[in-house]
């Protein structure tokens, strides 16, 4: 319209609008706005929202895990120190008990050995007494027997005397010791 009119006149006025161009620009631009609002913006906004949420959620999750781990560590440390105390206490007890047992055993052993020794002494003494008393009676009997024989045989010769004594001794040997005549 005004284009050809002005062109015929010489230089066109660049500030004069053309209605067709204005309508075209409006239509093209409004379609572009609609397409962006309908097909582009929702995708971007959804992604941004998801990302924001993921970051915030991730942070909260990490914080929760951290505090959980802290609590667990504290709990473990507490249990560990408790266990250490327990072990130390048990060790201490055991040592005390062991020492006590050693002392007791030693006392017991000493008492036992003392008792055994005393028993042995007593038995030996008793046996000695028994032997002595037996010996005394035996010696008496023997002496009387021997004296009787010596006198009865009328002391012929020295040889006979020697034989008699030897026989006596042999008899003596044949007799069991503990048996009184």
């Amino acid at each position: 319209m005004s284009l050809r009119f002005l062109a015929a006149e010489g230089e066109p006025n660049p500030l004069l609008p053309h209605l067709a161009e204005i309508v075209l620009a409006l239509v093209v631009f409004l379609i572009l706005v609609y397409l962006i609002a309908r097909f582009v913006m929702p995708n971007f906004e959804r992604a941004f929202a998801a990302r924001t949420q993921a970051i915030e959620g991730g942070l909260a999750e990490a914080e929760r895990k951290q505090s959980e781990a802290d609590a667990q560590l504290a709990e473990l440390n507490k249990q560990l120190s408790e266990a250490r105390h327990e072990a130390a206490r048990i060790r201490e007890d055991a040592r005390e008990q062991g020492a006590q047992i050693v002392v007791e055993m030693r006392e017991q052993a000493q008492a036992e050995s003392a008792r055994i020794t005393a028993n042995a002494h007593a038995q030996i003494e008793a046996e000695k007494q028994q032997v002595l008393s037996q010996l005394k009676t035996e010696v008496g009997t023997l002496a009387t027997g021997l004296a009787g024989r010596i006198v009865g045989e009328s002391l012929e010769d020295e040889a006979r005397q020697r034989r008699t004594v030897e026989r006596f001794l042999a008899e003596l040997e044949d007799q069991p010791v503990g048996q009184s005549s």
């Binding site: 093209v28 572009l32 397409l35």
Partner: peptide, 22 residues
């Protein structure tokens, strides 16, 4: 050119926003 520009702008955003990943 005006139409081409609109097509380019929309094409660019459509291609870059079609598959949105984290």
């Amino acid at each position: 050119l005006l139409v081409l520009a609109a097509v380019l702008v929309f094409g660019f955003f459509l291609v870059t926003s079609r598959k949105m990943a984290m």
